[in-house]
Amino acid sequence: MHSCPVFFLPGWQNSGPGHWQTEWEQHLGHVRVEQHDWMHPLRGDWSARLDEVVADTPESVLLVAHGLGCILTAWWAAHSRHAHKVGGALLAAPCDVERLDLAVRIPGWAPIARQRLPFPAVLVASHNDPSCSFERARQLAADWSARLVDGGDCGHINTESWLGDWPQGQALLRQLADEAGSLG
C-alpha cells in the first residue's frame, strides 16, 4: 500500500471502462485528477487543475500519466512551484502533440516541454503506438531524464491493448514508489 497519494492523469478523452487507469482506481484506491473538459483539453486549465490538486495535498504524491497526461506532467513540472511535492511519475504512452495530425485534433499543446523532470520518472512506450513513435518516445524520455521501458507491441497502452489491470505497470509503480521511499 502506498503511503502517499497516487494521482492519475488520464489523457485526451479520459480513461474509460476497461482502461488500466480505471481498473487501478477501482481496485487500488488511487485518485483520478478530474478535468473540466476531456474532449477539448486546454493546457492551461489542465495544468491549473493539477497544480490545485498537488498544492492541496499535504504530503508528497506519485503521478501516473497516460497519453496527453504525460505531456501535461512535463508542462506542469516546468511551470509549477509545487513540482517538488512529486516523489515520482509513471508516464505511459505519451502523445506526440507536435505531430501535425495530433496538433490539429488537440490544439494548443505544442510545444512539448522538454526540460529534465525535477522528480524520478519512468516512461513506458510501445513500438506500435499510433500516437507516438517509439523513437519519439525514446527522445522524450531522454529529454525528461526518465527511464525508458520498452512496452513491446501494445498499441497506445489503453483499453484496446487488452492489458487488463496492467501488472507490468503496477510493478513499475511499486518500483518507482520504493525508489522514492513512498511505500508503507
Rank of each mutant, 00 (worst) to 15 (best):
G67L: 02
H84L: 08
W75K: 03
R99E: 14
F119R: 00
W144F: 12
A83G: 04
A65F: 05
S133W: 09
V54R: 00
G88M: 00
E25F: 01
L148T: 08
R116I: 05
A113W: 05
N158H: 06
N158W: 03
H36K: 13
P10N: 07
V149A: 07
P120T: 01
C95E: 04
S133K: 07
G152R: 09
I71H: 01
E160K: 12
G18M: 08
S126F: 04
A103Q: 13
P118D: 03
D51Q: 07
N128T: 03
L123R: 02
R116Y: 00
H40K: 13
G29Y: 03
S145T: 13
I71Y: 07
H84P: 00
E179M: 05
A180R: 03
P58N: 09
L63A: 04
G29D: 12
Q35E: 10
I71G: 01
S161Y: 07
L173G: 05
Q13F: 12
A110S: 15
S3I: 06
V104G: 02
M39Y: 12
D178C: 10
N158C: 13
Q170H: 10
F119Q: 00
A171K: 12
H40F: 11
A78D: 12
L100A: 15
W12R: 05
V61M: 02
R116Q: 10
Q35T: 06
P130T: 06
Q175G: 14
Q26T: 13
A177K: 02
A89Q: 03
F7Y: 15
S182H: 13
S131T: 08
P167A: 15
A65V: 06
L28Q: 15
M1V: 11
L91M: 13
L102T: 02
A89S: 07
P107A: 06
A171I: 09
C154A: 13
V61H: 01
P167H: 11
V31F: 02
E98L: 10
P17D: 14
C154V: 12
R81Q: 14
I157L: 15
E98H: 08
V64C: 14
P130L: 08
G87W: 00
Q21L: 14
R105W: 05
G152D: 09
L100W: 07
I106V: 15
C4H: 08
W20Y: 04
V124C: 11
A141W: 04
D37E: 12
Q115P: 00
L102Y: 10
E179K: 05
I157Q: 10
R114Q: 11
L72G: 02
V97R: 04
V33W: 03
G16I: 07
P118W: 02
C95N: 11
E23V: 06
E98Y: 08
R81C: 08
V61F: 00
W75H: 15
A146I: 07
V54Q: 01
L42G: 15
G44K: 08
G44Y: 04
D153L: 14
A48E: 13
F134T: 03
V124P: 04
V97S: 06
E98F: 09
G181R: 08
L91P: 02
P120N: 02
R116K: 12
P107E: 03
C4N: 10
L140I: 12
R43Y: 04
R32N: 11
P118R: 02
V61G: 01
S60G: 14
R147Q: 14
L148K: 09
R147V: 13
D165I: 03
C4A: 13
G18I: 06
W76D: 00
R138V: 01
R174S: 13
V54T: 03
Q139E: 15
